[in-house]
Protein backbone atom coordinates (compact mmCIF):
# COMPACT_ATOMS: atom_id res chain seq x y z
CA UNK A 1 0.00 0.00 0.00
CA UNK A 2 1.29 3.45 -0.90
CA UNK A 3 -0.33 6.65 0.36
CA UNK A 4 0.30 10.09 -1.09
CA UNK A 5 0.19 13.31 0.91
CA UNK A 6 -0.65 16.49 -0.98
CA UNK A 7 2.48 18.60 -0.41
CA UNK A 8 1.55 21.97 -1.92
CA UNK A 9 1.66 23.67 1.49
CA UNK A 10 0.99 22.78 5.13
CA UNK A 11 1.92 20.04 7.59
CA UNK A 12 2.37 17.23 5.06
CA UNK A 13 5.57 15.97 6.70
CA UNK A 14 3.66 15.30 9.96
CA UNK A 15 1.25 13.04 8.05
CA UNK A 16 4.14 11.26 6.35
CA UNK A 17 5.75 10.68 9.75
CA UNK A 18 2.50 9.13 11.06
CA UNK A 19 2.22 6.85 8.02
CA UNK A 20 5.82 5.74 8.48
CA UNK A 21 5.09 4.92 12.13
CA UNK A 22 2.38 2.61 10.80
CA UNK A 23 4.90 1.09 8.36
CA UNK A 24 3.05 2.47 5.34
CA UNK A 25 4.93 3.76 2.34
CA UNK A 26 4.23 7.48 1.81
CA UNK A 27 5.13 10.06 -0.82
CA UNK A 28 4.67 13.78 -1.52
CA UNK A 29 2.25 14.92 -4.22
CA UNK A 30 2.88 18.27 -5.91
CA UNK A 31 2.03 17.54 -9.56
CA UNK A 32 -0.56 15.28 -11.28
CA UNK A 33 2.07 12.68 -12.21
CA UNK A 34 2.80 12.12 -8.51
CA UNK A 35 -0.64 10.48 -8.14
CA UNK A 36 0.44 7.51 -10.26
CA UNK A 37 0.58 4.26 -8.31
CA UNK A 38 -1.01 5.63 -5.14
CA UNK A 39 -3.72 3.75 -3.22
CA UNK A 40 -4.98 6.70 -1.17
CA UNK A 41 -4.35 10.39 -0.51
CA UNK A 42 -4.22 12.67 2.52
CA UNK A 43 -4.75 16.42 2.16
CA UNK A 44 -3.01 18.01 5.15
CA UNK A 45 -3.65 21.01 7.32
CA UNK A 46 -2.39 24.34 6.04
CA UNK A 47 -4.04 27.32 4.41
CA UNK A 48 -6.90 26.18 2.20
CA UNK A 49 -6.65 29.28 -0.02
CA UNK A 50 -2.96 28.59 -0.69
CA UNK A 51 -3.51 24.88 -1.34
CA UNK A 52 -6.45 25.61 -3.66
CA UNK A 53 -4.60 28.20 -5.71
CA UNK A 54 -1.56 25.97 -6.16
CA UNK A 55 -3.79 23.01 -7.11
CA UNK A 56 -5.41 25.13 -9.83
CA UNK A 57 -2.07 26.54 -11.04
CA UNK A 58 -0.56 23.07 -11.48
CA UNK A 59 -3.66 21.45 -13.03
CA UNK A 60 -4.37 19.14 -10.10
CA UNK A 61 -8.11 19.74 -9.71
CA UNK A 62 -9.41 17.25 -12.28
CA UNK A 63 -6.75 14.59 -11.60
CA UNK A 64 -7.61 14.76 -7.87
CA UNK A 65 -11.35 14.39 -8.61
CA UNK A 66 -10.66 11.45 -10.90
CA UNK A 67 -8.38 9.90 -8.27
CA UNK A 68 -11.18 10.23 -5.72
CA UNK A 69 -13.61 8.24 -7.84
CA UNK A 70 -11.69 5.07 -7.10
CA UNK A 71 -9.54 5.84 -4.07
CA UNK A 72 -9.81 6.96 -0.48
CA UNK A 73 -9.05 10.61 0.34
CA UNK A 74 -8.84 12.16 3.80
CA UNK A 75 -8.67 15.90 4.46
CA UNK A 76 -7.60 17.38 7.80
CA UNK A 77 -8.63 20.99 8.52
CA UNK A 78 -7.65 22.83 5.31
CA UNK A 79 -7.91 19.44 3.60
CA UNK A 80 -11.50 19.03 4.84
CA UNK A 81 -12.33 22.47 3.43
CA UNK A 82 -10.76 21.51 0.10
CA UNK A 83 -12.82 18.28 -0.10
CA UNK A 84 -16.12 20.04 0.63
CA UNK A 85 -18.87 21.10 -1.72
CA UNK A 86 -19.64 24.52 -0.30
CA UNK A 87 -17.90 26.99 2.04
CA UNK A 88 -20.00 30.11 1.30
CA UNK A 89 -17.06 31.94 -0.27
CA UNK A 90 -15.18 31.87 -3.52
CA UNK A 91 -12.12 29.65 -3.50
CA UNK A 92 -11.13 26.45 -5.33
CA UNK A 93 -12.82 23.30 -3.91
CA UNK A 94 -12.69 19.66 -5.01
CA UNK A 95 -16.41 19.26 -4.15
CA UNK A 96 -15.97 15.53 -3.58
CA UNK A 97 -17.91 15.42 -0.28
CA UNK A 98 -21.49 16.47 0.37
CA UNK A 99 -20.55 18.64 3.30
CA UNK A 100 -20.93 22.35 3.88
CA UNK A 101 -18.01 23.86 5.77
CA UNK A 102 -17.42 27.14 7.56
CA UNK A 103 -13.81 28.32 7.80
CA UNK A 104 -12.26 29.61 11.05
CA UNK A 105 -15.54 28.78 12.79
CA UNK A 106 -14.22 28.91 16.35
CA UNK A 107 -12.48 32.28 16.02
CA UNK A 108 -8.86 33.35 15.80
CA UNK A 109 -5.71 31.61 17.03
CA UNK A 110 -6.23 32.51 20.72
CA UNK A 111 -9.53 30.55 20.51
CA UNK A 112 -7.81 27.43 19.13
CA UNK A 113 -8.28 24.50 21.53
CA UNK A 114 -7.70 20.88 22.45
CA UNK A 115 -10.41 18.59 23.78
CA UNK A 116 -11.42 14.92 24.01
CA UNK A 117 -14.00 13.55 21.58
CA UNK A 118 -16.15 10.45 21.85
CA UNK A 119 -16.04 8.85 18.37
CA UNK A 120 -17.89 5.49 18.46
CA UNK A 121 -16.90 4.43 14.90
CA UNK A 122 -13.23 5.05 15.67
CA UNK A 123 -13.37 3.05 18.90
CA UNK A 124 -15.18 0.21 17.19
CA UNK A 125 -12.87 0.11 14.16
CA UNK A 126 -9.71 0.09 16.27
CA UNK A 127 -11.04 -2.04 19.15
CA UNK A 128 -10.27 0.66 21.71
CA UNK A 129 -12.29 2.40 24.42
CA UNK A 130 -10.39 5.66 25.05
CA UNK A 131 -11.78 8.97 23.82
CA UNK A 132 -9.89 10.74 21.05
CA UNK A 133 -7.79 13.79 21.99
CA UNK A 134 -8.34 16.32 19.21
CA UNK A 135 -6.27 19.43 18.37
CA UNK A 136 -8.19 22.24 16.66
CA UNK A 137 -6.23 25.13 15.08
CA UNK A 138 -8.19 28.05 13.60
CA UNK A 139 -10.47 25.18 12.79
CA UNK A 140 -13.42 24.94 10.43
CA UNK A 141 -16.69 23.21 11.31
CA UNK A 142 -18.85 21.07 9.13
CA UNK A 143 -22.09 23.06 9.12
CA UNK A 144 -24.14 20.28 7.58
CA UNK A 145 -23.88 16.93 5.81
CA UNK A 146 -26.12 15.82 2.96
CA UNK A 147 -26.46 12.91 0.52
CA UNK A 148 -24.88 9.79 1.99
CA UNK A 149 -22.31 11.73 4.03
CA UNK A 150 -22.54 10.86 7.73
CA UNK A 151 -21.43 12.55 10.91
CA UNK A 152 -18.50 10.89 12.72
CA UNK A 153 -17.85 13.35 15.54
CA UNK A 154 -19.23 16.51 17.11
CA UNK A 155 -18.09 18.82 19.89
CA UNK A 156 -20.38 18.97 22.97
CA UNK A 157 -22.39 21.95 21.63
CA UNK A 158 -23.34 19.82 18.62
CA UNK A 159 -21.14 21.36 15.96
CA UNK A 160 -19.86 18.70 13.54
CA UNK A 161 -16.08 18.20 13.39
CA UNK A 162 -15.69 14.93 11.47
CA UNK A 163 -17.62 13.29 8.64
CA UNK A 164 -17.35 10.36 6.28
CA UNK A 165 -18.83 9.66 2.88
CA UNK A 166 -17.83 6.27 1.52
CA UNK A 167 -14.09 6.42 0.90
CA UNK A 168 -13.86 10.12 1.88
CA UNK A 169 -13.03 11.37 5.33
CA UNK A 170 -13.01 14.96 6.65
CA UNK A 171 -11.80 16.12 10.07
CA UNK A 172 -11.70 19.69 11.40
CA UNK A 173 -8.90 18.69 13.75
CA UNK A 174 -5.32 17.43 13.34
CA UNK A 175 -4.64 13.76 14.17
CA UNK A 176 -1.17 14.27 12.66
CA UNK A 177 -0.21 16.56 15.55
CA UNK A 178 -0.87 13.88 18.19
CA UNK A 179 0.75 10.57 19.11
CA UNK A 180 -2.55 8.73 18.61
CA UNK A 181 -2.42 6.79 15.33
CA UNK A 182 -6.04 5.58 15.44
CA UNK A 183 -7.40 8.08 12.92
CA UNK A 184 -4.67 7.19 10.43
CA UNK A 185 -5.45 3.49 11.01
CA UNK A 186 -9.12 4.21 10.42
CA UNK A 187 -8.32 5.99 7.16
CA UNK A 188 -6.10 3.13 6.02
CA UNK A 189 -9.05 0.76 6.59
CA UNK A 190 -10.93 2.72 3.89
CA UNK A 191 -8.11 2.24 1.37
CA UNK A 192 -8.67 -0.70 -0.98
Amino acid sequence: MKIGVLALQGDFSEHIAMLKRLNVEASEVRLPKHLDGLDGLIIPGGESTTIGKLAVAYNLMEPLRTFGQRHAIWGTCAGAIFLSKDISRDQPLLKLMDIKVQRNAFGRQIDSFETDLDIPELKQATGTTENYHAVFIRAPIIESVSGDAKILASVPDGRIVAAQQGQFLATSFHPELTDDTRFHEYFLSLVD
Partner: peptide
Protein backbone atom coordinates in the same frame (compact mmCIF):
# COMPACT_ATOMS: atom_id res chain seq x y z
CA UNK B 1 -11.32 22.40 26.70
CA UNK B 2 -7.78 23.83 26.76
CA UNK B 3 -6.65 26.92 24.85
CA UNK B 4 -3.25 28.57 24.43
CA UNK B 5 -1.37 25.28 24.90
CA UNK B 6 2.15 24.66 23.61
CA UNK B 7 0.69 22.20 21.07
CA UNK B 8 -1.69 24.91 19.82
CA UNK B 9 1.05 27.53 19.58
CA UNK B 10 3.54 25.30 17.79
CA UNK B 11 0.74 23.78 15.73
CA UNK B 12 -0.27 26.96 13.92
CA UNK B 13 3.34 27.36 12.74
CA UNK B 14 3.23 23.76 11.49
CA UNK B 15 0.21 24.73 9.35
CA UNK B 16 2.25 27.54 7.78
CA UNK B 17 5.05 25.24 6.59
CA UNK B 18 5.88 25.16 2.93
CA UNK B 19 4.38 28.62 2.68
Amino acid sequence: VKTGTWTEKKGLAQMLKGG
